[in-house]
Amino acid sequence: MDIIVCVKRVPETTEADISVDPQGTGILDSNLPFVINEWDNYAVEEAVRLVEQLGGSVTVVSIGPEQCDEVLRRCLAMGADKAIRLTDDALADSDARATARALGQIIKDLPFDLVFTGVQAADDGQAQVGVMLAGMLAVPHATVVTEIAVDGDTVRVVRELEGGLGERLELKLPAVLTIQTGINEPRYVSIMGIRKAMKKELAVANLSEINLAGDQVGPAGSLTSVTRMFIPTVEQKAEILTGSVDESCAALADRLKKGGLV
């Protein structure tokens, strides 16, 4: 069972104050911590568990700058066997299609039974790359996967639908699955573990090494582009109860009481 996992390095923004860059098409991220995309972390864990059970190998693949190595080393420490990072100036501003094309170009020459991506990347939330990759590799796919059981040359998966409903599907291998959070409990990675994994292979490739031309990715190879980023100016609907904790709680309790809610 050879499994490829696509992982993206993303900024951690849940508690951060974000501002848009001077060009107006990106955010200022130099002060933000970067992490592995949450969904991809579950995907790596799932791949490592399957290979522990069934034998085989896990290869993690990421497109991005040198700083991605930190994320890839972390995946190696979780139990992946090998990492590949694709980097090239021409890849900047690739849309999901161009990203999937580049990932597909690497993956098609590797042995694989399964390819995992996250359901979505926490930064752009497109939820496109996994399915596009399946299209380019011409293999079946399933999205929002919360359970995986491999049986010979097929895999049975549970997809999460709406309202607590799920569905079981059967796919022929090889296949691409997009992994949902909660499918497992990702293991803890220690600094020690990362240090030990330094011996594992981390290969770096550029576009010409995977036989892609610069105009097949980046703006020329993309069908969509972000023309403007902005902080939404929605009217803050909430009445923010200010003051000390004591004051704001008293004000809230008072309003809830008046509304007959407590």
Binding site: A238, V245, C249, D254
Partner: peptide
């Protein structure tokens, strides 16, 4: 969440909860 809420408190929830609980109990 503050764009859809009616009331908001910007604070650490662990500081808010015990106080809010007391305030509500006092009112009751």
């Amino acid at each position: 969440f503050f764009t859809v809420a009616d009331y908001g408190i910007v604070a650490d929830l662990f500081k808010v909860l015990p106080v809010l609980k007391t305030k509500i109990e006092e009112l009751k």
